[in-house]
């Protein structure tokens, strides 16, 4: 069984009554690179949030890396989080800490040893191409560079899975492609499974990866080497 993620009859209904995901079945293999696409409000972020247990499914089963996410107690969520990295549109860096400190923070929080932190942080920063900016502060970096710091922080713990919710949403096309190169590199070199929600048609079409298409909470397509098809959305 090489599926890293499996969703079975998953439904997500928010407390206010909105149903964001209807009866979703999905399996994502280890090492794959999957885009989640769909219009605004189609449930992309909701799906990602269920994968890192920010939200619980109201029905069905979500399994990530062997953990049954819905059954995970609040106090045990950290076990899931340590298996994966997460990247957001807004980078979420600590403004008063340097690039190095921002990335090291992820390992300090889980009690890693100082030498191990150093080795892994430098490796991660090298992988995203920021080794020459270790002492800079976030406000001294471009948006693309900040996002690469966030990616470095997400992969510094060598996770099996990297979740990205619109990582290029704030970036111009050129910087977006840079980020995509970094992600593809991580997927190939580290074997990290990547699940990325995006709006960006061009990126999806260029990358030729697996594509999950959502429409108003329903899965409409799951294609290998998919494209961003307007009529499906």
């Amino acid at each position: 069984m090489s599926d890293l993620i499996r969703l079975k009859n998953v439904e997500k209904k928010y407390k206010n009554g909105t149903t964001a995901i209807y009866d979703l079945n999905l399996a994502i293999e280890k090492g794959s690179f999957v885009f989640i696409i769909g219009g605004s409000g189609s449930g992309k972020s909701t799906l990602i949030k269920m994968l890192y247990r920010e939200e619980k499914p109201t029905k069905g089963q979500v399994i990530v890396g062997g953990l049954d996410v819905a059954k995970l107690k609040n106090s045990k969520v950290y076990k899931l989080r340590r298996k994966l990295g997460i990247v957001f549109q807004d980078y979420r860096l600590l403004p008063k800490q340097t690039v190095y400190e921002n990335v090291a923070f992820a390992l300090e929080c889980i009690g890693e040893k100082k030498e191990m932190i150093r080795i892994n942080v430098l490796k991660a920063l090298e992988d995203v191409g920021l080794k020459n900016k270790v002492h800079s502060y976030p406000d001294q970096l471009s948006g693309g560079e900040q996002q690469r710091v966030a990616i470095a922080r997400a992969i510094v713990n060598n996770p099996k899975l990297l979740l990205c919710d619109e990582p290029t949403g704030n970036l111009d096309p050129e910087m977006s492609m840079e980020i995509m190169k970094v992600l593809e590199d991580i997927n190939k070199r580290r074997g990290t499974t990547i699940v990325m929600a995006t709006h960006d048609k061009e990126i999806v079409n260029k990358m030729k990866k697996q594509v999950v298409t959502l429409k108003q909470g329903h899965l409409v397509k799951f294609k290998q080497k998919g494209k961003y098809e307007d009529e499906a959305i």
Partner: peptide
């Protein structure tokens, strides 16, 4: 607040 939310994301335990 920001730091705490990041700690949660990167898998800090409640104790930490």
């Amino acid at each position: 607040r920001r730091e705490i939310s990041i700690m949660r994301l990167v898998g800090a335990s409640n104790f930490t």
